[in-house]
Write a protein that binds this DNA or RNA. Structure first.
Lengths: 222, 222
DNA sequence: AATTGAAGATTGTAGGACAATTTACATATG
DNA sequence: CATATGTAAATTGTCCTACAATCTTCAATT
């Protein structure tokens, strides 16, 4: 009976709300990879009993954000560079499917929206507005996956994205790679606009694989 | 304190064991899609309290085998043909990645094992032993995914396979499609043996997509 | 036959309890 | 001084009971 936000939204079940909240806390960085998550602390934080919290943790474990070690508790998952690379490989193929599906079914409106994202990113590059670029970049990817109209694909893709956020993401995108990246976006979007499924598929896969290589060559240096 | 199998294996946590057991029960068909799962019934069946059972159900929900409706309980998930088709599309791309990865790294031993599976399926076809074919077929797919050496890929692929088992799988593979299917296996395995990543990728994807179309054309008729 | 309504069942959550295990810390030992 | 050891405290894992909220069932009423 403490956090009012939780009291108000009784439409969804308590464990779901707790799950979302813990997820938010993890992705925001308040809990860092490797941190132990204490159940009692969460009961105090949310004002609930341990039951709903343990249920939420179970769900989070399945989504790959936390890890449970019997009798020792749950820990925010720690992602090795190797695992991140594995995730990128899978993500590349899922994103390739998204590109293909969207190329086959994109409406004129969707194509216009996609081109809008690319233009916005061009503007962000011109203004050297890194944050704005990142936001639009994320929105473009999200849009493509959502409009591919395959909920299974969307769920798995989003799960991977979440997991990747556990990986240290510093220096992930440097100055000139914004330009390179948006050139790839342009190719992706125009392939979709041309309803060329094969070309879209290849462009989407290549885009993620190049992002993977940028990530790897950056982290090798540290 | 009833089921001895659960008492013995206290090394893993109780919710994990319960989860595995419920999953087994669902996949075996004892609980059918759409069935409601009663918590108290499970407490009697496993001799545990509701806590661990609710945790297990949470985990199963995340893996897509059950569906929770607030205040109404959990139900074995019902898969529409449309959803099955979506799963097949994703599976095709994941399997394509598995084929590519394995082509790049397959050892001679692994190649020999793969060829053994194909030969065994040829023998099963010759003997008209459908069950044997199905078993070897499953083993081949599992082997490829496991030896692709990408745990993220493996986890997502296996999750899809489990979900597909919720779909009515009658008349999924008819007589002559065994031959067709194993011809495709042959192409997959030889592409891997040649360490030809592109060819393996294409062959693996095509194999799943053809399976999808066989499924669809069969279910259209019913 | 359709609607209503009360009784019963089930879910969702709380909270206390306790064994088993792990962690932390202080003390003894080489 | 560093290491080993032992004890106390904390934490997890599980059970139990309880009860409000909601859903389901089924009989009675219109």
């Amino acid at each position: 009976m403490s956090t009012p936000a939780i009291e108000l939204l009784k439409s969804r079940s308590l464990p779901m709300l707790i799950e979302e909240e813990i997820q938010r806390v993890i992705l925001s960085g308040e809990y860092e990879p490797g941190d132990r998550i204490n159940e009692k602390e969460l009961t105090l934080r949310f004002g609930t009993s341990r039951g709903p919290i343990r249920e939420a943790l179970r769900s989070l474990e399945a989504s790959g954000l936390i890890e449970q070690i019997p009798n020792r508790g749950v820990f925010v998952r720690r992602l090795t560079g190797e695992m991140a690379a594995h995730i990128y490989d899978v993500r590349a193929f899922l994103f390739a499917l998204a590109g293909r599906l969207l190329a086959l079914r994109a409406t004129d409106d969707e194509i216009a929206t996609l081109r809008g994202f690319v233009r916005a990113m061009d503007a962000a590059i011109a203004a050297d507005d890194f944050d704005h670029y990142v936001r639009e970049n994320f929105a473009l990817h999200e849009f493509i996956v959502a409009h591919a109209a395959n909920p299974v694909l969307a769920a798995q893709y989003l799960s991977l994205i979440k997991q990747l956020r556990l990986y240290r993401t510093r220096s992930l995108m440097l100055g000139d790679s914004m330009q390179e990246s948006n050139r790839e976006h342009h190719e992706m979007v125009e392939a979709i606009a041309a309803h060329d499924a094969d070309r879209a598929q290849a462009a989407h896969m290549a885009h993620v694989m190049r992002a993977k290589h940028r990530l790897i060559s950056n982290t090798e240096l540290t």
